[in-house]
Design a protein around this nucleic acid. Structure first.
Length: 484
DNA sequence: TGAAATGTTGGGGCG
DNA sequence: ACGCCCCAACATTTC
C-alpha cells in the first residue's frame, strides 16, 4: 500500500487556496486528511462555546467537501503531540503537511511535533494559509517588530505583495489505508441542554460554500461604499467575513485578491481601500501576538499595570446580558448573544463602556467575547480589547470615551438597530430611544416601557462615570516620557 | 475608529 | 451709524 501524505487541518478548513493540501496532492502520494480535536479544556484560550459550535459546523462541511473530492477526513481527539505521530506510524505515512498557526501555545506544540516527526524519519512541511504577511517578514529598519499601525501598513505595502490564491485541487486521490475516524457529532462541540445555537445557525452558513456566498455578497453590495456603510450597525455594510477567516473556510489571500480584482487600491481611502486596510489590521494583530506572546494577558503598555480596575461582578453580569440601561450597549451585547457576532462599531461602544464607564478590566471583556464570538480569534481579540482600553499598541487614548447615547444618535439615527435587538423599547420615539430615562411619563406609558420594570434604569450616570474614569486614569497612569 | 470644555468669529437685534 | 450683547457655528484645546 502506498505511503500517504497526511494533511493536518487546523485553522484552514478549506480546499481552495490551501498550500498544505496542494503540496500533499502534488507529492503524488495518496492524501490522508486529518483533524485533531485537542483535549484542551484545561488550557488557556481553548476555543470558547460559540467557536466550538462553529468549528463543528465547518468540520462537517470540510468532511463533505473532501468526500466529494475523493478522500475521507480522519477525525481524532487527544493531544496532537501524540495523535499526529501515532497516525503517521499507523498508516506508514511518508510526509506530513500543515499550514502554520501563530498563537504562542500552538507554535510551541507545532515545533515539538515537527521535531518528533522528523526524528521518526518523516518529511514535514509547514505552509502559510492564514496571513498575507507573516510576522517575521515585516520589521522596522532597526529589525524590530512594529508597535504602531501606520508604519506597519506602509512596510507591508513596500514589501512583496501577497501571492494570488492557490487553486482548488480538482480531485484528490485518497489513501486506501483505512484509518478509523470519529464523527463530527462525537466531538461534543455542539451545545445541548440548552441548545443556545439556534440563532447562530440561522445567521451563519458554514464551509467554503458559506464563505464564498458571504464574500460575493459583500463585494457586490458593500465594498464600494464600505468606508461609510461599515459604520451603520443596522445595515449589512461590514464584510462579516471574520467567522470564515477564523476557521479558515476563507483565506485572506482570497479576500485581498477578490477586492483587488474589483479595482481596490491600498493607497486610496475610498471604500475598497479602507477595506484592504482592515485586512491589514488583522495582520497587525498577528504581528503583535507573534512578537509579544503575552498580549492576551498582559497590558501592552505596562503603565496600565497600575490601573485599579473595579471588581464589579454585578456590573459585568449586566453588561454581558445586555441590561446596562444604555440601549446601544444592550443592543450590541444581545446581538452578540443571539448571533455570535457583533457589528464592529458597536464592539467599540460596548468595550469602551465596560472598560471606562464601568472601569472593569479589559480581560473580562476579552474572555466574554472569546466565549461568545463565532469569530473569536486570539490575535484580533487581544489586540482590539487592548486598543479600546487604551493600553494597547497604537491604542485609542484612554480619555477617548465613547458616549453611548451620541454614538446611538449618530450611527443608528432611525433606531433600527436598537429596536431590533432591544424590542421592549421599540415603541419609544426616535428622539428618546437612546436615552429612555429622559422620557416623560405619558410618552413612556404609551410606548409600554417602565424603567426598572421591563427595561433597566442606566446602571451608571454617563457624565459621572466619564468623570470617574478620567480621574482614575489621571491618578494612576503616568505615561513615561523621554525626559523623565 | 471621541467628547466636552473652551475659544473665536460673525451676523443680527437693539438702544 | 455705531457699539454692545447674544448666540450659533465653527475651531481649538483638553481630557
Amino acid at each position: 500500500m502506498a505511503s500517504p501524505a497526511i494533511v493536518w487541518f487546523r485553522r484552514d478548513l478549506r480546499l481552495a487556496d490551501n498550500p498544505a493540501l496542494a503540496a500533499a496532492v502534488a507529492s503524488g502520494r495518496p492524501v490522508l486528511p486529518l483533524f485533531v480535536l485537542e483535549d484542551d479544556a484545561d488550557r488557556a484560550w481553548a476555543p470558547g462555546g460559540a467557536a466550538r459550535w462553529w468549528l463543528s459546523r465547518n468540520l462537517a462541511a470540510l468532511r463533505d467537501d473532501l468526500g466529494k473530492a475523493g478522500t475521507e477526513l480522519v477525525i481524532r481527539r487527544g493531544k496532537a503531540e501524540q495523535v499526529v505521530p501515532a497516525l503517521a506510524r499507523e498508516t506508514g505515512a511518508g510526509e506530513v503537511h500543515w499550514n502554520r498557526r501563530y498563537e504562542p501555545a500552538a507554535i510551541a506544540s507545532d515545533t515539538a511535533i515537527k521535531a518528533a516527526l522528523r526524528e521518526a524519519g518523516l518529511e514535514v512541511h509547514s505552509h502559510n494559509a492564514s496571513l498575507l504577511f507573516e510576522p517575521w517578514t515585516i520589521a522596522t529598519k532597526a529589525g524590530r517588530p512594529f508597535r504602531v499601525f501606520t508604519p506597519f501598513w506602509r512596510a507591508c505595502l513596500a514589501s512583496e505583495m501577497p501571492k494570488g490564491p492557490g487553486a482548488r485541487p480538482e480531485a484528490i486521490r485518497g489513501s486506501s489505508v483505512g484509518a478509523c475516524t470519529l464523527n463530527v457529532g462525537d466531538l461534543g462541540l455542539e451545545p445541548h441542554k440548552p441548545d443556545w445555537a439556534g440563532g447562530l445557525a440561522d445567521t451563519w452558513k458554514p464551509g467554503e460554500a458559506g464563505a464564498d456566498a458571504a464574500l460575493k455578497q459583500f463585494l457586490g453590495k458593500s465594498l464600494q461604499r464600505y468606508d461609510n456603510k461599515r459604520n451603520i450597525p443596522s445595515v449589512e455594510g461590514t464584510s462579516a467575513l471574520s467567522p470564515y477567516l477564523q476557521v479558515g473556510a476563507l483565506g485572506p489571500r482570497q479576500v485581498w485578491h477578490a477586492a483587488m480584482a474589483l479595482g481596490a487600491r491600498p493607497d486610496l481611502a475610498d471604500g475598497p481601500g479602507v477595506f484592504l486596510k482592515e485586512l491589514i489590521w488583522r495582520e497587525f494583530s498577528y504581528h503583535l501576538l507573534f512578537h509579544m506572546p503575552h498580549l492576551p494577558e498582559a497590558n501592552f503598555d505596562p503603565a496600565f499595570d497600575a490601573m485599579p480596575w473595579r471588581d464589579d461582578a454585578e456590573g459585568l453580569r449586566r453588561w454581558q446580558r445586555g441590561l446596562t440601561g444604555y440601549p446601544m450597549v444592550d443592543a450590541g451585547m444581545r446581538q452578540l448573544w443571539a448571533t455570535g457576532w457583533m457589528h464592529n462599531r458597536v464592539r467599540m461602544v460596548v468595550a469602551s463602556f465596560l472598560t471606562k464607564h464601568l472601569l472593569i478590566d479589559w480581560r473580562h471583556g476579552a474572555h466574554w467575547f472569546w466565549d461568545t464570538l463565532v469569530d473569536a480569534d486570539l490575535a484580533s481579540n487581544s489586540a482590539s480589547w487592548q486598543w479600546v482600553a487604551g493600553c494597547g499598541a497604537d491604542a485609542a487614548p484612554f480619555f477617548r470615551i465613547f458616549n453611548p447615547i451620541t454614538q446611538g444618535e449618530k450611527f443608528d439615527p432611525a433606531g433600527d438597530y436598537v429596536r431590533r435587538w432591544v424590542p421592549e423599547l421599540a415603541g419609544i420615539p426616535d428622539k428618546l430611544l437612546q436615552k429612555p430615562w429622559t422620557g416623560e411619563a405619558a410618552v413612556m406609558e404609551r410606548a409600554g416601557v417602565r424603567l426598572g420594570r421591563n427595561y433597566p434604569e442606566p446602571i451608571v450616570d454617563h457624565a459621572a462615570a466619564r468623570k470617574r474614569a478620567l480621574e482614575t486614569w489621571q491618578t494612576h497612569i503616568r505615561k513615561s516620557s523621554p525626559e523623565e
